[in-house]
Write a protein that binds this DNA or RNA. Structure first.
Lengths: 370, 370
DNA sequence: CTGAAAGCGCTTACAG
DNA sequence: CTGAAAGCGCTTACAG
């Protein structure tokens, strides 16, 4: 007999040990079976809805009554051990407190939550996502959803673990992927600014510059240059994805920028734009009078800034939901199974979600050249 | 033999069945034992670090080598079933995409994540938190952390489930709790406004008005009235906790408010303040020239608004961390154990975290009476 | 229509 | 210092 005293959810029958409160005893299938006068097998069939044609209807009713009366819930550990199924899915993102990833996480959980236990991994909680993923293998990981994956995570990812990458336009390792069409978003920004007469544009970059940020910067540059504009991406004008860091960088960079004839600043993310706008306020730089400002993300709050921010609207929740659905298919369909020897390896599915530019008051006609 | 074909993580030895890829086979303690030439018991002792004085050091080394070589990870389902321990903790909040609760969640997970599997429940994912909590019982819930609990959740909460309530100043059901001293925050706001000469103040309320919001409103009112000010809480000036809803409510309410001699508006949350500020911008109401505006929460972005928002700074991460730590103590210490018969039931621990007012540019001297 | 039995992978007294 | 065995609570062929 395994001893487990002091355990709040002890399963020990309370045999005369007054220190073990009765309420600590879990209800087992055996309890339901005894109460209903049937075997454990029958209880299992009923609670798993596999009784049709195998258990008499009134037996079913009796068992259901007892389940409700006793408050029986199948023990997940035992169930998973018995059926050998993987029950957990990991959702790995770079941050929880960044509303973009919060929305991605919610979308993913909504798509997967019913079938799997969703476990979130963010650096804010787990120092090391790889370490956490290793630990999760103990939960029999069914799959993983990885947003803006780091090199480390990609390197670790076992080939046989169904996984979907999100928002990783550059990660070309043949994994199924759901991306946002940030390249098109950048083009839309360029067209918008060109139409407003902007010909000298600065870009505020993100560090570290992951795939999506590289795309945002280079495609914007290419499209602007093709339209006859000049683009600056000054070293000083870059920061982590954080409004405070962006504010400090922008504050330092603004004096020099004012010397150039820049009429618009495009930011790698809305958070950068928040910091920039605040710094503009400090320096008396009027937006959009002197500079037009554009962001990427269109966070829920961006429409409420002063001035409201023109931003590339990224469907974060749909990104999460779409990736979640794809992962579920992958797991269920065994799309990850080894192809027959000699077969042409199927191209992994890459879904690209469209984005749109939300035009607001932070952009306007280019100021007459300073 | 239990049949489990089509299972990605099938544990079937791959005996001649070519359709079952080898990589799908999990490594079990038995594999490590065989490889190291020891028994399963010994492997268990070593991986659980219980070998001191019981296993020869070079046996330990040999086993560790094999564990590393084979990539063995203890199966959590089997482990939990064997030790009968509860491994999961639920964190229930009203929202994920509200940065305040995102920070609370991160704090809680940081405090609990090492020892327990943290499962988040938010309405955005699970329609019904109660239903989800019931399902979680199957995971042998060790405890729950419940932020701004609804009546439903409180009613369901089993008496024997260790639970900590967060930010629930009115929930007087004797549960251990961690609260924010929003009452004091309201007093600080009142003092700040009175000192600036404000004597006619409006309050923008939240719907539904949960405990914490009632405290914010009533304590502010009492403190302002005690200081000789008049307080309005117009029905029109209230909305859900959402910047868009707040914007619409504020837009509709502003014309009437301009008719009153109000010089300051205090908002139930920063999100309300975002909507109000935007509406003020639309209506040409200068902040703080005409109205001073104050929020509650001090969200990370509030310092970057134009003007930067004066707000009651609520330590969200500490709230989560503190509650997480308290819950861990509760679970470990069995503080929930039935007291000895006749003993005076100990008062539940209620921790109240101090808050502070972050004074920024959105508040200033009261405008001369209109 | 129903139940006895094996098995999932682990942990832990217990007996050497 | 080491291993055989029981038990955790469930599911699923299998035999009635």
């Amino acid at each position: 007999m395994v001893e487990r005293d002091g355990d709040v959810t002890s399963d020990h029958p309370n045999q005369g040990d007054l220190r073990l409160p009765t309420r600590g005893r879990r209800v087992r299938a055996a309890d339901v079976a005894a109460a209903a006068g049937v075997s454990i097998s029958t209880v299992s069939l009923v609670v798993n809805d596999k009784w049709e044609g195998r258990v008499a209807p009134d037996t079913v009713a009796r068992i259901r009554d007892e389940v409700a009366r006793l408050g029986y819930v199948v023990d997940e550990s035992a169930r998973r051990l018995a059926i050998g199924a993987a029950g957990a899915v990991a959702v790995v993102t770079p941050a929880f407190t960044n509303p973009f990833y919060a929305r991605v996480s919610v979308g993913a959980a909504a798509a997967l939550g019913a079938a799997y236990q969703v476990v979130f991994s963010v650096p804010e909680i787990d120092e090391d996502p790889v370490e956490m993923l290793v630990r999760l293998r103990g939960l029999r990981l069914a799959g993983a959803l990885i947003a803006a994956p780091s090199e480390d995570v990609l390197r670790w990812l076992p080939a046989d673990l169904p996984a979907v990458l999100l928002d990783a336009p550059g990660a070309g390792d043949g994994r199924p992927r759901v991306d946002l069409d940030v390249a098109d978003g950048a083009v839309q920004v360029a067209e918008h600014l060109l139409a407003l007469g902007h010909r000298r544009v600065a870009f505020m970059a993100a560090t570290p510059e992951t795939d999506t940020f590289v795309v945002r910067r280079t495609r914007l540059r290419d499209a602007l240059v093709a339209g006859g504009a000049t683009v600056f991406a000054p070293d000083a004008l870059r920061s982590e994805v954080d409004a405070g860091a962006a504010y400090r960088a922008a504050s330092a960079a603004i004096p020099a920028l004012l010397g150039s004839a820049v009429t618009a600043v495009v930011c790698a993310t809305d958070l950068h734009a928040y910091g920039l706008l605040r710094a503009c306020g400090d320096h008396g730089v009027e937006v959009p009078g002197r500079w037009s400002v554009v962001g990427f993300d269109d966070q829920p709050l961006s429409a409420f800034l002063t001035p409201p921010l023109t931003s590339v609207s990224l469907p974060a929740d749909e990104l999460g939901r779409s990736a979640g659905t794809l992962l579920a298919e992958l797991i269920a369909g065994g799309a990850d199974a080894e192809p027959p020897a000699g077969a042409v390896r199927e191209r992994p599915s890459v879904r690209v979600l469209p984005v749109s530019l939300a035009v607001r008051a932070s952009t306007g006609p280019a100021a007459p050249s300073a």
